[in-house]
């Protein structure tokens, strides 16, 4: 088999996507059947999640099946998704952003809003993005944390977590 056309590569990817979603749908449906009671009257609490699970299974089967049938077909280049980058660096960045957000939430609860925000901004800019202009990094870190704290916390009265690590 010679080089795959972009169209064929797309079909292979759809096959994988369809199969992953198929598994997700089956697992979801299984959990729904195992944990949600059917209810006592009318359309109970189980019905909707169940129908959605079955729907997902059916649709992802169609997606995967269609892609399988077209795997050696011929068609237009589907074009890209409008997103930048490919492969490992992108995957790494997805994980990093996810972790930054989660760590921000965790820190906010523990170290309080001000410190958590300053740390998150500084870490993202300096370590993750490699920004080396000290004034920009410091300005953003202090500006974002103190700015939001002043405007929303003090002036507008929004609740900002104080954290449990520091006694003030």
């Amino acid at each position: 088999m010679s080089e795959r056309t972009p169209y064929q590569a797309e079909q292979r990817r759809d096959l994988v996507v369809g199969l992953v979603l198929l598994v997700l749908g089956i697992v979801w449906t299984g959990i729904v059947l195992a944990t949600i009671p059917p209810g006592n009257y009318g359309i109970g609490p189980r019905a909707f999640p169940l129908w959605l699970g079955v729907g997902l299974v059916a649709l992802s089967a169609i997606l995967a099946g269609g892609a399988w049938l077209r795997r050696n077909g011929d068609g237009e280049d589907p074009g890209d998704s409008g997103l930048a980058g490919m492969g490992w660096p992108v995957f790494r960045m997805v994980v990093l952003v996810c972790l930054i957000l989660a760590a921000y939430g965790f820190l906010m609860q523990r170290a309080g809003f001000l410190l958590a925000t300053a740390l998150t901004v500084a870490f993202s800019l300096w370590v993750v993005l490699g920004e080396r202009r000290p004034f920009l990094v410091a300005g953003m870190a202090i500006g974002m944390s103190v700015g939001v704290w002043l405007v929303f916390g003090q002036l507008l009265g929004a609740y900002l977590p104080r954290g449990t690590w520091l006694p003030f």
Binding site: L119, A122, W126, L166, P167
Partner: peptide, 24 residues
């Protein structure tokens, strides 16, 4: 970055010491 972290942690510790008594 490391120096900054240390600085922040250090600052936090000092403040914690200063205010820790009051909470008790």
């Amino acid at each position: 970055m490391n120096s900054m972290k240390t600085l922040l942690a250090g600052g936090a510790a000092v403040i914690a010491l200063a205010f820790g008594g009051a909470a008790r």
